[in-house]
Design a protein around this nucleic acid. Structure first.
Length: 680
DNA sequence: GAATCACGCATTTTT
DNA sequence: TGCGTGATTC
């Protein structure tokens, strides 16, 4: 059998730009891969091609942002080669950072068994610090300090730098909080997510021996989604590249949508300056969307000033026209979308899975969810609040952590009074004292307390006993190694569902939160089926390492609802872009922040448009309730600014009756534009 | 220790 | 408008 990787065979499987990217192995290389141009294909072929040339797998490093991307890349390389290349590193920035620190962090005075603080651990720590410095603080203060610290870390600044730069009281407060925060982390032998990248860089800087070790190992470095790298990821990459300069970065400046998180897209724009003599290859042949969809995408994005000029070319036909409709209000926006879905479903072979409803902000999903439920149309909501930050997930995982590890006092203290069972600060103090005196964990102490030991008031003792019994019942199933039953029993015993009902009066909210809990339970059962004989602790470990997107893929049923951010990299035959109005897209905050932020919003629209393969619907409302009050809405500037509407617009929708087309559409839009001008 | 009230605020999100 | 937080009160 002739290898798929022989040069002659490669030419048949790749277009000429792709071929060149795949076969350029030496020196700096920038691949500008527009949406749908076969980016992943290029990366995987390139890795396979390097290996085919005899490059040692352990000298190849491919870095991605998400676990999902890393996993996909591994699978596709394996598929291409027919085996998994032993020793190759395909990993996320963060797990690579963890790996380096677990090996070498002692050079920084950090013990290698450090713990990693997640965003909510970070918040509670900061809340305490801020309260200490300034007294009362709001949660938005906490968040804003958190993000300031994170941005500073990613710019590679420390608290001293912030103090030097501080111009007002608020900035001084941030700097002081930052200093205290770092002290706390250090004394607890903990790091946060930003440190996972920043500390390895520091390590390399301080210790050239360690740096040389990694540089010597990774002779071929590849970075995916390069437009999303932030300052410290950039330095991290730079410091991994040795004198051979075999670095290949792949990305699309037009899809840089994480600026708010510190991503600096000028890094991709300045790659040629960083690596003089770099080869730049543009992938512009799009295999995903019809020509009319791409012409709109090209037109929209060409309004941006900061970008590499490029244009997506369709390999498919013109396709059907894009429909841009302006509905009366939010309910009719929802109606319109659902009607179109059923219409397309009726007239074509489309399944619900072929549709996606894309929105700028997660809250826009609400009315769609309600009506989809009402009509009993299956749907999956992706994104929104981070899965592991959701209260119900944190609660449940807290319980399970305790089951898995009775010594995990942090988890135990998190759940000891959730649901409320009358174990407040005083009870906890007593428990803690008791546990210390007996030299046992706090969790273990509740069993002694419920048997009458220690000094506890009767009511408190009764509450502790109930909790102890709940755990005892669950543990019976643990001995039988029926983990699913164990988890369900525990939740049952503590009346968790009832607790959710108390907490959230809205049955819809309860339903979705409880569904998430159910999903966790099913996950346990499925895992146990797949991994018979493994301990529950192993399951918890696996769970903590995976993220939501991995599990979401298989479970995606029905119509997909998601934010534009989480849609990047995906494609759907039919896409609805909803809420395409001023102050939603572009978002109000971005308008206030200025041109740079608005350009990022425009890229967000570009990402949205390029998700569609065959049909694209752009939908907005003429009025909408905003924080309770009904407001008149204007269409997004990104659509009105490009003019030449008839090219794309097929119909103008009015729920009250007639479909208006052609000139009248133009007339309506012109009117709006004039209104807009008068306002100024 | 828990219930109640009033207030302030309101993106996007991975690890 | 509705949620979550913090302070106040029982």
């Amino acid at each position: 059998m002739r290898s798929k990787l022989e040069a002659s065979s490669l030419r048949g499987q790749l277009n000429s730009a792709q071929y060149e990217a795949v076969t350029t192995h030496l020196g700096p290389l920038l691949v500008l891969a527009g949406a749908g141009t076969g980016k992943t294909r290029v990366i995987t072929f390139r890795i396979a091609s390097l290996l085919h040339e005899g490059v040692d797998p352990s000298s190849i490093l491919a870095v991605t942002f998400t676990n999902k991307a890393a996993k996909e890349m591994k699978e596709r390389v394996k598929e291409l080669l027919g085996f998994h290349p032993k020793g190759i590193t395909i990993s996320t920035f963060h797990s690579l950072g963890v790996r380096i620190l677990r090996t070498d962090s002692e050079a920084l005075g950090l013990r290698t068994n450090f713990t990693i603080y997640d965003s909510s651990d970070q918040q509670s720590l900061l809340r305490g610090i801020l309260r200490d410095i300034r007294g009362a603080v709001t949660s938005s203060d906490v968040r804003s300090v958190q993000s300031a610290i994170s941005l500073a870390k990613n710019r590679f600044q420390d608290s001293d730098d912030l103090i030097d730069e501080a111009e007002d009281d608020w900035e001084i407060l941030i700097a002081r909080a930052f200093a205290r925060y770092e002290e706390h982390l250090f004394s607890m032998n903990a790091v946060d997510f930003d440190d996972l990248i920043r500390l390895p860089v520091k390590l390399f800087k301080n210790n050239s021996e360690i740096r040389d070790k990694y540089q010597g190992q990774f002779r071929f470095v590849m970075v995916d989604e390069y437009q999303d790298t932030n300052g410290s990821q950039y330095r991290f990459t730079q410091s991994l590249v040795g004198a051979e300069r075999n670095i290949c970065v792949v990305g699309d400046d037009d899809q840089s949508i994480y600026g708010f998180r510190g991503a600096e897209m000028d890094k991709i724009l300045k790659f040629e300056r960083d690596f003089p003599g770099a080869k730049v290859i543009k992938l512009e042949e799009n295999y995903r969307s019809t020509a009319s969809i791409l012409s709109l995408a090209n037109r929209v994005i060409s309004e941006n000033s900061e970008r590499y000029p490029k244009e997506l070319k369709s390999t498919l036909g013109v396709g059907e026209p894009i429909e841009w409709v302006d509905t009366k209000d939010e309910p009719s926006e929802v109606d319109y979308v659902l009607r179109k879905i059923s219409e397309i479903k009726r007239t074509t072979k489309a399944r619900y899975e072929d549709f996606v409803i894309l929105m700028r902000s997660a809250f826009q999903a609400r009315p769609f969810e309600e009506k989809l439920r009402l009509r009993q149309i299956p749907y999956t909501l992706v994104g929104g609040q981070s899965y592991y930050d959701r209260k119900e997930i944190k609660d449940v995982l807290g319980y399970w952590n305790v089951l898995s590890n009775p010594h995990d006092d942090v988890s135990f203290l998190r759940i000891v009074n959730t649901p409320k069972r009358g174990i407040g600060p005083t009870a906890i103090k007593k428990l803690d004292t008791f546990a210390r005196s007996k030299n046992i964990s706090v969790y273990e102490s509740i069993f002694f307390a419920s048997q009458g030991q220690g000094d506890f008031p009767p009511r408190m003792r009764a509450s502790l006993k109930l909790l102890a019994e709940a755990f005892a019942k669950a543990r019976d199933f643990k001995e039988e190694e029926d983990y699913g039953q164990m988890c369900r029993t525990l939740l049952d015993e503590i009346c968790y569902k009832e607790y959710l009902h108390e907490l959230y009066p809205d049955p819809l909210t309860v339903q979705s939160r409880w569904a998430a809990v159910e999903e966790l339970c099913r996950g346990v059962e499925k895992w146990q089926e797949d991994n018979p004989g493994q301990s529950f602790s192993r399951y918890m470990e696996a769970l903590m390492l995976q993220t939501q997107d991995e599990q979401a893929d298989d479970d995606r049923r029905g119509v997909t609802l998601m934010t534009l951010h989480s849609a990047k990299g995906l494609e759907f035959p039919v896409a609805f872009l909803v809420g395409t109005e001023e102050e939603i897209l572009p978002h109000k905050k971005s308008i206030e922040q200025g041109d740079r932020a608005v350009e990022e919003e425009r890229r967000l629209l570009y990402v949205g448009i390029t998700r569609a393969q065959r049909r694209l619907f752009i939908v907005g409302a003429k009025e909408r309730k905003v924080y309770g009050a009904t407001r008149v809405r204007l269409p997004s500037r990104f659509l009105t600014e490009i003019g030449d509407f008839e090219h794309w617009v097929k119909e103008y929708y009015d729920p009250d009756a007639q479909v208006v087309t052609g000139d009248q559409t133009n007339f309506f839009l012109n009117q709006i534009l004039q209104q807009g001008n008068q306002d100024q």
